[in-house]
């Protein structure tokens, strides 16, 4: 589904990611793990096209790397970005409406909104409330639901557990597991390696802009030393 080849990412003159390659097969949940500053968010930004990058990014066999941000979204990429970035001055419902802006059929948008408000009952209760007034966990749910509104082929989740209380983190991971079980293809970026490993089919460990290890949860989990060093979570 998603194939990334020799991707390098630049922030101004600084190269943050150095020629990494990885794949996400359809229906899989793959995670990018690693400490702060490893280049995880840079990788996500490169896939959506908001930063300057070189290398090849393909979704479903179609080359994305030479397309503007909007076209990539239109062709099936969707992101719940780091820091959630819900539209704080809009209602929950309007946030979702914008999430579905690229869906042509109005009826589909309405039914999708209804569907996600049902899936996330807390959002359903607050549909008319401004997104800025939601709690962190609720905002994260909204960000994920907004990303799903575009009916993506692949969902990019950037640090969905960041800054949330443990109980809420568990809820968020439940949601991700649920999405995976429904067949969604997911690329998950996380610092919380233990949780992410558990639900991922395959994981890559990033450090200093390079992939330093990869494999299934069992394989990576065995190398406790590596995990401890890179994520700070034993």
């Amino acid at each position: 589904m998603l194939a990334v080849d020799q991707l390098s990412v630049f922030h101004g003159p600084i190269e943050a990611v150095h020629g990494i390659s990885f794949n996400v097969a359809a229906g899989q949940c793959v995670s990018l793990l690693g400490p702060n500053g490893a280049g995880k968010t840079s990788t996500i930004s490169a896939i959506t096209g908001v930063v300057r990058a070189t290398g090849r990014i393909e979704v479903d066999g179609e080359i994305m790397s030479d397309q503007p941000v909007e076209s990539r979204i239109l062709k099936g990429v969707s992101v719940a970005p780091e820091g959630r970035r819900v539209f704080a001055n809009l209602s929950v419902e309007d946030n979702l409406k914008l999430g579905g802006a690229i869906v042509q059929n109005k009826a589909n948008i309405r039914s999708d909104i209804a569907h996600w408000l049902q899936t996330f009952p807390v959002l359903g209760e607050r549909r008319a409330q401004l997104a800025g007034t939601l709690s962190g966990g609720e905002q994260q749910m909204l960000a994920i639901a907004r990303a799903l509104m575009s009916r993506p082929k692949i969902l990019l989740l950037d640090e969905p557990s960041l800054g949330l209380a443990p109980k809420i983190v568990a809820q968020i991971f439940d949601i991700i597991r649920h999405l995976k079980n429904e067949g969604m293809t997911i690329l998950l970026v996380e610092q919380n390696a233990t949780q992410a490993l558990k639900l991922s089919d395959y994981s890559y460990l990033l450090n200093n802009g390079k992939i330093v290890a990869e494999g299934s949860a069992e394989k990576l989990g065995q190398s406790n030393e590596l995990m401890a060093e890179l994520t700070g979570i034993a």
């Binding site: 908001v50 941000v69 979204i73 970005p81 970035r85 690229i102 509104m149």
Partner: peptide, 14 residues
């Protein structure tokens, strides 16, 4: 929404 976060508006495909 664009008044607040233009990049995010592009990220929903508008």
């Amino acid at each position: 929404a664009a008044a607040l976060d233009f990049e995010m508006v592009r990220l929903v495909g508008i």
